[in-house]
Design a protein around this nucleic acid. Structure first.
Lengths: 334, 334
DNA sequence: GTGGTATGGGCAAACGGTTGCGCAAATTTT
DNA sequence: AAAATTTGCGCAACCGTTTGCCCATACCAC
């Protein structure tokens, strides 16, 4: 037999209706025990496997979750995907992947393809300069729920999982203050990112606790590229006050910043100290790792986001309620 | 309208047959220009989008490629995925993802789910201890072509893309020899991996060129875990001859090995020198990076493998011919 | 014997498209 | 002007499965 056996085949061989076979395979109580057994026996013998595409079509469900995120090769995201995939697989969902490469246009295109493929739901971490969310609103029309994680839009009528960077930043800056640093620079991300603003808030809180006042020239918004980081460093190092510690947006930024500092002849850990936000396992391999890292729980975020999405899909969730899960970040000292 | 418009809707509104609408949308020449325009206009107006699941079902094609690989969080694989995804997207294919976590059982399970989802084709990089390929042979029955990449089975009647580690290893060991090293240890992978055997061959070739003889006690098979690496290091460092250089299986292994060496009080670059195989961008962040790395072109491998798979799907490829693409690895000196 | 209720299973529609074939009208050919 | 061909479109089957509803037969109580 060239093509795989269908339910019809089984029906014909057993002189039954396809409906009976279908029910027998699903252990429907209306089908007598002996027919049920016969059907199942033959199904096994023929190595029958239901044609999922037919079922997807019929049930209007694909058991597929879409993921859109900026960059797979960033450790943070690949850890998040692991969390997503593991969780999805437990419920027999598959995972359809798309990278935006931090490009809003690509993000839009992928969102459309995902819709065309009729994914049951979508998990999204935004491209860093996405400010227009129309391509996600469009999905509501198709009844495709979206759960954002980590890089989330600044909206309340959405579902999301994110890490609150405030607490972690507060701890990180406090640590530096306790170690005697008084002029602490911060290489922050783009203003649009909530996470950037949270970092700022945490930074300010730490200063307030120590009765120091906030100096905006020490908090630089950068675009997170290598070039941007170097410019930020240049600004910080030429500040009228002498910066002795720097909070870098993440380990990649930290790495670039360290590089720049070295080029300027500074000694890491002596002239200048770094703390950062974890992109594990990167930091464990770095030549001059930050003295502390704010953990952002990528795996957990992926897992949580997927759980929420799955709940949304099984309808356990009231549609009009928006789920907001905020994990507290936590400082890990090396 | 709650549910998206269908072809039937359009037909009804225009008093046409669904077949006509379908053809009109596909610019079938048999449909008159004016009807064609009318249909397309209305389709635009209603924002008609074909229901892909219906098409998938009908055409027995899903425009989806499956990927099975060991671990997303390894930089090598996430780079490979990027290559795969980018290439697939160009042909409007989506990418379904599964991680085996280097576990053969999981690999099998995923292969089955992929089959159930009727992926059009599969890209696979094997779990490191997979020796039974029955779950991939099974796919042939369903007419799902498989292209292996990087971690490939030791078979000839398959399609694959891989990097030949021989040339790179030859270059790497030659470099060490030229630098005066005479006792060069090698932390190799599991014997089952072709890549391990290629490394051995390259190593032997280099020695032969320099008229040195091969000492099997310097070539240790390890399981690539941190623990395995430490054991391998222990063996190498206790060799009766003094090992002054080590070829590590990859950057992760190199990292662990360096760690161990440091613990033993050795000075990297002085007492002992490392070369490795690239898991970029890891090495650029390492505290004691290897002096040279064998590049394995993950993005390119992913790209090539996908191109082959796509050709297989469009039938441009003779079915009975097996495509074997072998990229030569190349040494990159820091 | 009549009516009622399980019990076991079949019929057919529906999901949303695609496509081979047929059929009329319009156009060209001879 | 009849025949042949082209043009334009509709009919209906089909892809594999699920499911609402209907229909026998059997069994029960009265």
């Amino acid at each position: 037999m060239a093509n795989p056996p269908t339910i019809k085949e089984i029906a014909k061989r057993l002189n039954l209706a396809t409906s009976t076979v279908s029910r027998a395979l699903h252990n429907h109580p209306r089908i007598g025990l002996r027919t049920r057994m016969q059907v199942q026996a033959l199904a096994r013998e023929l190595q029958y496997e239901p044609n999922r595409t037919a079922i997807f079509f019929q049930q209007k469900k694909t058991f597929t979750l879409g993921i859109i995120l900026p960059e797979l090769s960033e450790a943070f995201f690949s850890a998040a995907i692991s969390g997503i995939e593991d969780t999805a697989n437990k419920s027999d969902y598959m995972v359809l992947l798309g990278q935006s490469h931090d490009d809003t246009e690509r993000e839009k295109k992928i969102a459309h393809i995902m819709k065309d493929h009729r994914v049951d739901g979508l998990l999204v971490s935004l491209a860093k300069n996405t400010v227009d969310y129309s391509h996600f609103e469009m999905l509501q029309k198709y009844n495709i729920p979206v759960v954002f994680f980590d890089r989330i839009p600044d909206l309340t009528d959405i579902h999301y999982v994110a890490c609150n960077m405030e607490s972690g930043t507060l701890q990180a800056v406090s640590l530096l203050l306790e170690k005697g640093h008084r002029v602490i620079g911060m290489i922050n991300g783009p203003e649009e990112l909530i996470a950037s603003r949270q970092r700022t808030t945490g930074y300010q809180q730490a200063l307030r606790k120590h009765r120091l006042k906030y100096d905006a020239t020490l908090n630089i918004n950068s675009d997170l590229t290598g070039k941007g980081t170097r410019e930020a460093m240049k600004q910080l190092l030429s500040n009228k006050r002498k910066v002795t510690a720097i909070v870098a947006f993440n380990d990649y930024v930290s790495q670039d910043a360290v590089q720049y500092a070295l080029e300027q002849g500074l000694q890491i850990g002596k002239d200048i100290t770094f703390v950062s936000y974890a992109n594990l396992p990167l930091s464990s391999y770095m030549a001059f790792p930050p003295i502390a890292s704010v953990e952002q729980y990528p795996y957990l975020q992926g897992q949580k986001a997927t759980e929420i999405l799955l709940e949304l899909l099984t309808g356990k969730q009231a549609k009009n309620e928006f789920r907001h899960v905020v994990l507290d970040s936590r400082l890990v000292i090396r």
